[in-house]
Design a protein around this nucleic acid. Structure first.
Length: 268
DNA sequence: ATGGCCGGTGGAACCGGA
């Protein structure tokens, strides 16, 4: 089974890119972020015509996630548990019924900038950075709950986390940024430490592997990228991994997203 | 060498992104 995660930066602006990519690469499951669309406006027919089931969790203007699947999806749930007042559409979960059942979590983790700290160095309540950390704590709780069920699952998407220095062309430019500062990386490592496998780093070592290049300042031409789109696998899911790779060529095409797809191949 | 963008909203600039 071939699974891809892809922050498409606006499904309406990117619909031709998305359809061409589906036709060319034929993922069994595509996990999308930043659809920037309400559910009613999602161009679902174009996707369904290609043999996909479409499940969306969108909102007006910003954020929004979706799952596209060639296999049936069951028990779809929208929103990350743990805060009923959270209005941002950043999380969707479903069970894909292939050879064996696999729980898929698609996520768009908050960016967290600007980082606002009080005089004691604590995130200012109500600020974007506090929201990011609180969201990560909820994600950790969700991972814990799924681990307790001992079912195979994966959590994939735009984590807005640069895990290590080798995951940025210029790590020194990111030291106080919400994507890379110590507290952010610690929160990410705490999730991994539950017993999840970061698929790409289980397969590929060394620097120079990125999934995002800013539209600004010629970042793509200078290969000034960061790796922030990740697959986290439960132990049973990690046992099924055949390969994980980044589809870098997508960034150089016509009308690209600023992110590229990351692929996971499973023997399931 | 330096500076450089893009999508959505709404109908002009501004917000948000990373």
């Amino acid at each position: 089974m071939k699974i891809a995660t892809f922050n498409i930066n606006g499904v309406k602006a990117r619909i031709q890119t998305l359809c061409d990519w589906l036709d060319e690469t034929k993922p069994d499951i595509a996990i999308l972020q930043e659809i920037k669309s309400v559910d009613e406006a999602f161009p679902r027919e174009l996707i369904e015509d290609r043999g996909y089931i479409v499940e969306t969790h969108g909102q007006k203007s910003f954020n929004g996630v979706a799952l596209l699947s060639r296999y049936p999806l069951e028990d779809v749930s929208r929103g990350l548990p743990g805060d009923d007042s959270d209005e941002q559409a950043r999380f969707i979960e479903a069970t894909v019924v292939g050879k064996s059942a696999l729980r898929i979590c698609g996520l768009y983790l908050p960016n967290g900038n600007p980082v606002e700290l009080d005089h004691a160095g604590q995130p200012v309540a109500g600020g974007k950075y506090a929201y990011k950390l609180a969201w990560m704590a909820r994600l950790q709780a969700r991972a814990q709950a799924l681990l307790a069920q001992e079912i195979p699952f994966l959590m994939a998407g735009d984590y807005n986390i640069i895990p290590q220095a080798e995951d940025a062309k210029r790590p020194e430019a990111w030291t106080e940024d919400a994507l890379y500062r110590q507290t952010s990386r610690e929160a990410f490592r705490k999730i991994l430490a539950l017993g999840l496998t970061e698929a790409f780093r289980a397969r590929v070592q060394g620097p120079g592997h990125y999934s995002f290049w800013d539209y600004q300042a010629g970042a793509w031409n200078r290969d000034d990228g960061i790796r922030i789109d990740h697959f986290l696998l439960s132990p049973q899911c990690a046992d099924m991994m055949i390969d994980c790779h980044i589809q870098r060529d997508m960034r150089g095409r016509e009308k690209p997203s600023d992110h590229v797809p990351v692929w996971l191949e499973l023997d399931n």
